[in-house]
Design a protein around this nucleic acid. Structure first.
Lengths: 244, 244
DNA sequence: AGTGGGATTTGCGCTAGAGCAAACCACTCC
DNA sequence: GGAGTGGTTTGCTCTAGCGCAAATCCCACT
C-alpha cells in the first residue's frame, strides 16, 4: 500500500474511462477508497478463480487477461493499456475472477473493493453508466471476435487482431504505427485462436512482404492498409495472391 | 401500441431480471415509460445497424439475436427467453443495434427509449446495477464461447451449447429435459460456429444413441449426463468411442 | 568465447470438418 | 394425387491449418 496523493491525483483520475465526467466532490470520494499497487514484469495480478474480486484500473504498463482450460489450452481475452479498467466483470456475479491477469511489463495499478465500488456507484450514478458503457463495448467486441472465430480463416483473424491493437494503442512513429504491447508470437496466436505455428508463418510472410516489422517484441506496422485489406478480403497473400 | 395495465403489471415487472428489487414507486415509474409491442413469428424486431436503439424486455415467446457478415455467414449471438432483456448493449455506445433480432415464435415485448432508461437509471441506481450484472454475465458467457471456439472441436461445442440452452430454458418433462426454443439444425450450427452439415451429423448420431430426440422442432434431452460428458471429454461418440 | 534457455522459423504428414450434390422427408396448398 | 417448399440426412472430396520435430536465432550470463 502506498499513498495515492502523488500518483493518483484527481486530475489523472478524470482521464480514466471509468471515472469520466465526475464532479470534484465525487472524485475526492473515489480517490479515498482506492488502493494502489505495483507489479513487476510477469507477476500475476490475480488468478482465475480467486474470490473477493476487486475493480482494477491500470495506470501504467500493460496487462494480459487470459483464460486457460484444464487441458492447458490458453486464450487471451484482452490486453489492457494504461487508463483501462479490468477484472470488473466478476463484481456483479459471484465475485470470482473468471480469468488470469498477468503483468506483461512493470505495471502500476489501483483497485477498489467490490463493496466500495458499489457504494460509489450508488452515490454517483455516472460511475455506473460509465461502467455500463465500458462493459457494453467489451461485449460488442467479444461478439465481433466470436463471429470472426466462427466464420473467418486464420489469416483474416490475425489481420483483425492487429487492426484492433492499433486502434487500442497504436502510436505513430517515423517508420510505421507501433503497437505498444510486447507481443510474442504465442500471444498473437492466443489472441486469435490459432497455434503458435500458424501465427508465426503468417507474420513472417507479412514481414517479408514489408508490411510490418517486429523490433524488440513490439510490432510496427508499415502498411496498415494492406493488413486491413487482408482482414476484409477473402484470400490473402499466402495463397492465391490474385483475386482470380 | 397497447395499454400496459393488463399485461405489464407491477407484479410481473418485479420478475424481470432488469427490474428486480425495485421499490413500488420506482416500479410505477418504470411502467409509465414503457412501450409494448407484438410480433408474429419470423418478423424482425430490429435490424443490425438500425439507429435509435431501445432497451427491450421479452415478455412472451422467443427471439433470436444474430449477426451476419457481408459474405452471408451468420452467427447466433444469443437466444432470448421470456423475462430477459435484449438489444441494450447499443444504448451506451452509438445507439445502433449491433445485431438482428428476429421473433422465432409469436412474441410480446416491451421496450424503453435510451433516454428514458438512462433517466430511470439515474433515479433508481438499482436498475443500473441490475443492468451491469446482466451485461457482465453475458460478457462472461461470450468469453466462454470464445474460448470454446478457439480451443474445442465441433462436437464439444455442440454439447456445451445444449448444456447452456438447458440451463437457460430447460423444462423437465416425462421423457427428458425439453428446450423450449424451436431449433432448426441451422440454428444449432450458427450457435456453435459450425456448418449445417456437421451439426446435423452430430445430432443424428446422438439421436441414434438415444441421448436426445427432436420433436416438433424442440430438442428433448434424455441423457443430459452423456451430453455433459462429451462437453468435457476430449473424444466423443463419433470417433474413437473408447477412451483408449 | 562459451553455454543454456526462450522464442522463432520451417518442413512435413495428417485429419477434422467444410462444402457440394443429391436424396429424402414432412407438410401444405392446389 | 401431385407439385412445391423447407428442413434434414448422407456420401464424397478436398484443404486449411494443426501439431510434431528439428533447426535456427537471439539474448543474457559466466
Amino acid at each position: 500500500m502506498m499513498t495515492l496523493g502523488t500518483t493518483l491525483t484527481r486530475r489523472t483520475l478524470a482521464s480514466l474511462e471509468l471515472f469520466r465526467g465526475l464532479l470534484p466532490a465525487a472524485q475526492q470520494d473515489v480517490v479515498a477508497s482506492a488502493r494502489a499497487q505495483r507489479f513487476i514484469r510477469n507477476a500475476r495480478i490475480f488468478n482465475q478463480g480467486d474470490s473477493n474480486a476487486r475493480a482494477h484500473v491500470l495506470l501504467d504498463g500493460s496487462v494480459r487477461i487470459s483464460q486457460s482450460g484444464s487441458d492447458g489450452a490458453q486464450i487471451v481475452m484482452r490486453l489492457i493499456a494504461p487508463g483501462e479498467m479490468f477484472g470488473t466483470v466478476a463484481l456483479f456475479t459471484d465475485h470470482r475472477y473468471p480469468a488470469d491477469a498477468e503483468a506483461m511489463t512493470d505495471t502500476f495499478e489501483v483497485s477498489w473493493s467490490g463493496a466500495d465500488l458499489l457504494k460509489l456507484m450508488q452515490r454517483h450514478p455516472q460511475v455506473a453508466t460509465n461502467a455500463l458503457k465500458i462493459v457494453g463495448k467489451r461485449l460488442q467486441e467479444a461478439q465481433d471476435r466470436m463471429r470472426e472465430l466462427s466464420t473467418q480463416r486464420v489469416e483474416q483473424r490475425v489481420a483483425h487482431a492487429i487492426v484492433r491493437l492499433i486502434r487500442q494503442t497504436g502510436r505513430e512513429t517515423e517508420d510505421g504505427i507501433a503497437i505498444m504491447f510486447p507481443l510474442r508470437r504465442k500471444d498473437i496466436a492466443d489472441i486469435c485462436g490459432t497455434t503458435l505455428y500458424s501465427a508465426s508463418r503468417i507474420l513472417t510472410a507479412w514481414e517479408k512482404a514489408g508490411w510490418l516489422v517486429t523490433r524488440d517484441q513490439r510490432l510496427i506496422v508499415r502498411k496498415p492498409s494492406e493488413i486491413r485489406r487482408i482482414g476484409e478480403d477473402l484470400r490473402g497473400l499466402r495463397r492465391g495472391k490474385g483475386i482470380a
